[in-house]
Nucleic acid binder design. Structure first.
Lengths: 207, 207
DNA sequence: TAAGATACTGAACGAACGTTCAGTATAAGG
DNA sequence: CCTTATACTGAACGTTCGTTCAGTATCTTA
């Protein structure tokens, strides 16, 4: 790879990185190309040289982020001896990787407002499905190990995903330490909530 | 109240109602005044006759919604015999009252993008604080009744708020029945998670 | 070093938006 | 019935935004 290609790639990454920060901070619509121009020092034209459109730039970021998350999880997963440890590791990575899904909110916004290319819609639906499967698998693991009360893993996966999403929302103004503590506590509640040896029934509304 | 005033009030409500639906569906930025014009049949000028600005209209909706929620809760609260029942009632109202905070997401978006009037920022911060206090009180009640494990009610309030917010996100495409079931399950997990008689310790990471 | 490919610039454009305002219709009150 | 206050209209304005493109700079290659 020669000097020019290298430079070009760096520029593309610089744009992507700046755009990512802006989308996370301000949301999709509220981030203008002009904002990205200011943050990078590149020109408008150059952004459109590297990316097809604002939508294309966003899509690029979404895919990159999802890929990176998976990558990092794979590196860590084997290090956790038990499912419980995995859960806490999961929570930690959610925080460390920029408070869960820093782009999810923008993605969500994007996804509502734009009349969809359906390429985008499909990709996002796929992403959510992958997350739910991921969660479900983790929960099933704990059930198989006898640590969790056997029940509908599908709902639990949605609840876990919702919890993570909600926590990211709640801790937007927190420090890293606070966020880590909060996620840790939340996972603890969740784990006690699905633990194998439940205390006596609490609801007159049970299944 | 004469005919004209009545008519005027109805128009204002019609605008508010249509705007609310649009903000919930599309978000703050993505909803244009033109959209509201189309949805109501009123003219642009008329919207600006009834509301100071787009921001003012949104603020009006936020306050109305928060007030209504409280109102409805007060009607129901005394009907629940135990704290546990209150929690399930809480979850139910979250769903029935338009899936938790239908405007929270728009509010959040609004709140990020706009350079704040600080009137708005203050009001939203207050609102979140009120919710957290509400949650904390509910949890404290359960602890006092000996039903919940005594612990940091502050974090738990945040976790509950996050869970509710996340669930509303997850069930945007669900039916009412599915949402009710999901929220019910989630509250059950949460209650087991903070129940008084915990199973043996699960984490090597305890406080 | 000349020619061509690649990387980048920034002015310009058209569409969309929130807001305003001069003007019109309608009901209220004397 | 006539005046005045109120409710409403919609064209027009100024701004912002995503996108385009003719032109320039820089590097590669032969």
């Amino acid at each position: 790879m020669n000097k020019k290609q290298l430079q070009s790639e760096q520029t593309k990454k610089k744009i992507a990185h700046a755009a990512r920060n802006l989308f996370v901070q301000k949301g999709y619509k509220a981030t203008s190309i002009e904002d990205i121009v200011e943050a990078t020092g590149s020109s408008k034209g150059n952004i459109y040289y590297h990316f097809k459109s604002k939508e294309g730039l966003f899509l690029y970021l979404i895919e990159e982020w999802d890929y990176d998350w998976d990558q990092k999880w794979r590196e860590k997963e084997s290090l956790y001896p038990t499912t419980i440890d995995k859960f806490f590791g999961f929570a930690e990575q959610m925080v460390l990787e920029d408070l869960n899904h820093p782009l999810t909110k923008s993605a969500d916004e994007f996804f509502k407002s734009e009349e969809q290319t359906s390429e985008m819609e499909e990709r996002i639906t796929d992403m959510v499905q992958r997350h739910l499967q991921f969660n479900q698998q983790l929960i099933q693991e704990g059930i198989d190990a006898g640590q969790f009360h056997a029940q509908d893993t599908n709902s639990l996966a949605v609840i876990l995903e919702g919890l993570m999403f909600g926590l990211s929302h709640m801790s937007r103004k927190s420090s890293l330490q606070e966020a880590l503590a909060l996620y840790h506590d939340a996972i603890k509640v969740f784990l006690y909530g699905i633990a194998a040896n439940r205390p006596e029934d609490q609801s007159n509304n049970e299944e």
